[in-house]
Amino acid sequence: MENKEISLDRLPIGTRASVTSIRSNGALRRRMLDLGVISGTEIEPLYTSPSGNPVAYLIRGAVIALRSDVSSKIMVSA
């Protein structure tokens, strides 16, 4: 899986990866920028909610839960 680009929602729990791009131009992109998600930012999925969606991610030292519709638009490479 080295250097392969996948969307964040498909990244296995406990795997650290860095962001390559955000596939959205609207509010979602702005929100992610606010959280400091830019290309190169490291993200690690920590745990899933009881139903599997949303998933809690470690982003810059904070734990942020994202629904899959958001995480599927964030591309990362492990």
Binding site: A27, L28, R31, L35, P54, A56, A62, V63, I64, A65, L66, R67, D69, V70
Partner: peptide, 11 residues
């Protein structure tokens, strides 16, 4: 449709 959002889980 539900809008995208994020939820912080504070320490």
């Amino acid at each position: 449709l539900p809008s995208s959002f994020h939820l912080e889980l504070p320490p």
